[in-house]
Amino acid sequence: MQVFVVGNISVDETFLIDELPAKGASIHGVKTHQDLGGKGTNQAIILSRCGIKTTLIAAVGNDSQGKWCHEKIASENLALFPSSPRDCRTDTSLVLNCADGDNANITTVTAANVLSLDDINQAMSFSNSGDVVLQQGNFSVEKTAAVFALARKKGLITVFNPSPVKWAFAQLLPLTDILVVNQLEVRLLSGENEILPAAEALLNTGVSQVVVTLGAEGALLLNAQGLQRIAAPPVKVADTTGAGDTFLAVMLASTLRGQSPISAKDMRRAAKASAITIGRIGTLSAFPTRQELAELLN
């Protein structure tokens, strides 16, 4: 079994600030580092480090940043398609990291938009029934729907992490097998204010499994077997960037390795991995290593 992550690659530039600026405000900040990022890339790298055969379907531009991204990805045990850059600028994420550990991100999608359905279809031609297609929220609703429709036609399992979230993504839930959302996303997609009724509403659209991450309060899983909750392990917060991507990838890797539906055990493993990321500064540099993940998963 393998996972096809259809998403984005970006260069993350992180600035440390005291608090998020109000509209029209000018503030001071300190650029702390530059790292490889993009939700698709983050999730693909962690899946690969978990020992899952992974292909990242994502584009970079033909600029110096694109070359730098290719070099970084080449150091991971991860297949990248397409292998050649596109005639555009590489996407960039501006990460505003507050002193309390919270963050806000601004991400461009120029290269992500250049990635064509033909590119994606060509990469997925190497898939087999039962493989997994994982998408985030960096494409248009129409393009995201087309990828999932193609996946369903090929008999693939569809996993959706609709971040950045769009309200219109709700129409794609009937094409989704596993949905992973945070508290903001579950409310927006369902129209419900309370977390559990919101998750139930999404499950009723035809999604097989709904996972809601709750930050310091842990996570919950809702499926046909009922409700399961897990607590988050205590951690000293250094930087929350990439924590959600770590959780999703390790949870998915754990359930794929066990060849069974998502369980509380899978989520607890994911929460421990996410705590490692939260306790470190950066994106790629903060992710658990192969050795750390092997210890968590075995």
Rank of each mutant, 00 (worst) to 15 (best):
114 V>S: 14
269 R>A: 09
101 G>K: 09
202 L>E: 01
10 S>L: 08
85 P>H: 09
223 N>A: 05
4 F>W: 03
268 R>P: 04
192 E>H: 11
110 T>A: 15
246 T>M: 09
242 G>R: 05
166 K>Y: 07
125 S>C: 07
245 D>G: 05
71 E>W: 11
246 T>P: 01
136 Q>C: 07
271 A>W: 04
18 D>M: 06
171 Q>I: 15
272 K>G: 02
297 L>R: 07
149 A>Q: 15
270 A>S: 04
282 G>T: 10
62 N>M: 11
60 V>P: 00
123 A>P: 04
100 D>R: 13
13 E>R: 14
40 G>R: 01
83 S>C: 09
18 D>E: 15
77 N>W: 06
170 A>Q: 13
258 G>F: 10
10 S>R: 01
199 A>R: 03
49 R>S: 00
14 T>R: 05
143 K>D: 12
161 N>Q: 09
292 E>Y: 09
227 L>P: 06
145 A>L: 11
22 A>M: 14
182 N>V: 11
233 P>A: 02
191 G>P: 04
170 A>W: 06
227 L>E: 08
121 N>Y: 08
261 P>E: 08
68 W>L: 06
225 Q>W: 05
268 R>M: 14
40 G>S: 09
119 D>P: 07
15 F>S: 13
161 N>T: 09
120 I>E: 00
122 Q>G: 06
283 T>C: 15
57 I>H: 02
188 L>D: 03
149 A>M: 10
121 N>Q: 14
235 V>H: 03
167 W>T: 11
173 L>D: 02
171 Q>F: 12
142 E>A: 14
204 N>P: 02
190 S>C: 10
2 Q>W: 05
256 L>P: 00
70 H>I: 12
290 R>M: 07
67 K>E: 14
35 D>V: 08
